[in-house]
Design a protein around this nucleic acid. Structure first.
Lengths: 233, 233
DNA sequence: TTTCCAAAATGTCTGAGTATATAGAGGAAA
DNA sequence: TTTCCTCTATATACTCAGACATTTTGGAAA
C-alpha cells in the first residue's frame, strides 16, 4: 500500500519536518498510481498527523511532536526499521508507567470468567511455548483479557497498540536468538496476583514483566534493515 | 467535513458495531458529495480504526475495542457530544496514571530554559486568568513545556491529545459556570516541585491537579447537545 | 499600507472499467 | 437424502483519466 510506503519513509527520517512532498501529479506519476489513489494515501497520513496538506502550498511533513505516535500503524512503521535507542527507551518508559497500573486495576475489577480465560491462556502458553504460533496467540490472549478486565477502554486502546508493535519485534528477535528464559512463571505471578485481587502485587509483577521485556528487546541483536513481518493492511 | 460528520455519528452510537454503511454510491448521493470525496472520508475513518472496508462487503463499523480512542480527532468527536460517564471516568483514570508520572519525569529532566518558560507561563496565567484567551494559551503553554521536559515523545503525544480534548469541554463548561477556584496556586505547586527537582512532590502536585480537573468536569452542568467549539480541521 | 488579482496547488466531480470476495447454485460423495 | 465441495454470477469496492472548481498565497497596483 502506498500510504504505508510513504509513512515508513517519513517516520524513518527520509523526509524531514517541514519538507514538501511532490505535488499530487508528479508524486502519483512517480509512484505509478493514479492521482486518486495517491490522494487517498495522503489522507491516511494526514489522519495520523504525519503530514499537513493545504491548497496552494502542498503536502508538508509535520513536526514529530504532532505525529500520532501511538497510532498502531505509525508505531508499526517506526518499528519496521531500527527505531533510535531513545525512542525505544521512551516507549518502555511509557509501558512501565501504564501496564503495572493496568494490572492493578485488573486485580480490582476482574470477573471470574476473565480469570478462567487467563488461566487457560497460561496453560496453552506453557504447552506450546512462544516458539510456536499457538503459544504466541495464547500470550496475546492473556494480555487482551487482562486489559479487558481493567474495564478502561482507553487503557485497552493504548496498551494493545503498544504491545502489538513490540510483539512484532519480539517475534523477529526470537528468530535470531531464541529466548532461554521461560516467560510462563513471570506471567503466572501476574495471574496469581490478579486472582488474589491484590493490586500491589499485580503492579509489581507486571513491572517485572515489562522490565524483562525491555531487557530482551534492548539486548537483542540489531541489524540495519530488519524486514519485520508486515501485519498491517 | 464529511469524515468528521460520519465519525461523530459513529462514536456517538448512531451506528452500532457491525452495521454496514450505505454503499459508496448511495452514501455519496445522500451526503451530496462525489464518490471520490466520500471515499477519502472513509479512508480517514478507516485510518482511525472506526470502520473496516472490504470489497464486496462494504464499509462496516468496527467494534469499539478497535477504535483508536486516543486519536485526537476521535477523542474530540467523542467529547463533541455527551460522552457516557464511564468513558469520562476512564479517561481521567488514565490521566491520573500518566500525568503525575510525567510531572515526576519532568522534575528529573527539565532544563533551566524550560523552567523559565513555565514560570513565565504561570505569570501570564495569573495576569489574564482562564477567562481570557491569553490565559488559556498560557495554561496550554505551561503543560506543553512540562511535557517537553519529560523528554518522552510518547508521553507528549498521549497527553497532548487527551488534554486537548478535555480543554475544549473545560472552555464550554466555564462559559456556563465560571470557576470560582483559582487554578494558579495548584499549577504553581507543580512548578515548584519541578523546579526543586523533586519527583515525588511533582507527582503528588500533578495528581491533585488532575483530581481537581475531574471534579470540575464531572460536576459541570450537562446538556444534551453541547455545541462545543470545533477546533478540528 | 491596503486592496486586488492571478497563479499554483489542492479539492471536487463524473463516468468508465477492473478486481475481488461472498453467496448461491449445482454436482459429487457419503 | 444429506453433506460437502467447487464453480460461477454478482455486488461491491478499487483504480483510473480528464475536466473543472476552489482556495490560498504572494505580488502588483493604487
Amino acid at each position: 500500500m502506498v500510504a504505508r510506503d510513504i509513512g515508513i519513509q517519513i517516520v524513518s527520517g527520509r523526509y524531514k519536518a517541514g519538507d514538501l512532498l511532490d505535488g499530487e501529479i508528479e508524486a502519483s506519476e512517480r509512484l505509478n498510481v493514479s492521482r486518486t489513489a495517491y490522494r487517498e494515501a495522503v489522507r491516511i497520513l494526514a489522519a495520523k498527523g504525519l503530514v499537513e496538506v493545504r491548497p496552494k502550498i502542498g503536502t508538508r511533513i509535520t513536526a514529530r511532536s504532532k505525529w500520532h505516535l501511538l497510532d498502531p500503524d505509525v508505531l508499526s512503521w517506526i518499528f519496521k526499521y531500527e527505531p533510535d535507542d531513545h525512542l525505544l527507551e521512551s516507549l518502555f518508559e511509557l509501558r512501565k508507567i501504564v501496564e503495572p497500573e493496568a494490572a492493578a486495576l485488573a486485580a480490582k475489577n476482574r470477573s471470574e470468567a476473565q480469570l478462567t480465560s487467563m488461566s487457560d491462556a497460561l496453560d496453552e502458553m506453557a504447552e506450546h511455548t512462544l516458539a510456536k504460533e499457538e503459544g504466541r496467540l495464547a500470550d496475546q490472549n492473556f494480555h487482551t483479557v487482562l486489559l479487558e478486565a481493567t474495564g478502561n477502554p482507553f487503557l485497552i486502546s493504548l496498551t494493545s497498540s503498544v504491545s502489538a508493535a513490540v510483539t512484532w519485534t519480539t517475534i523477529f528477535k526470537q528468530r535470531l536468538r531464541p529466548l532461554q528464559r521461560d516467560p510462563v512463571p513471570d506471567h503466572r505471578r501476574v495471574y496469581e496476583a490478579i486472582a488474589a485481587a491484590d493490586p500491589e502485587a499485580a503492579h509489581q509483577a507486571m513491572a517485572d514483566l515489562v522490565d524483562m521485556a525491555f531487557f530482551d528487546t534492548a539486548t537483542a541483536p540489531r541489524s540495519k534493515s530488519r524486514d519485520l513481518p508486515d501485519m498491517s493492511e
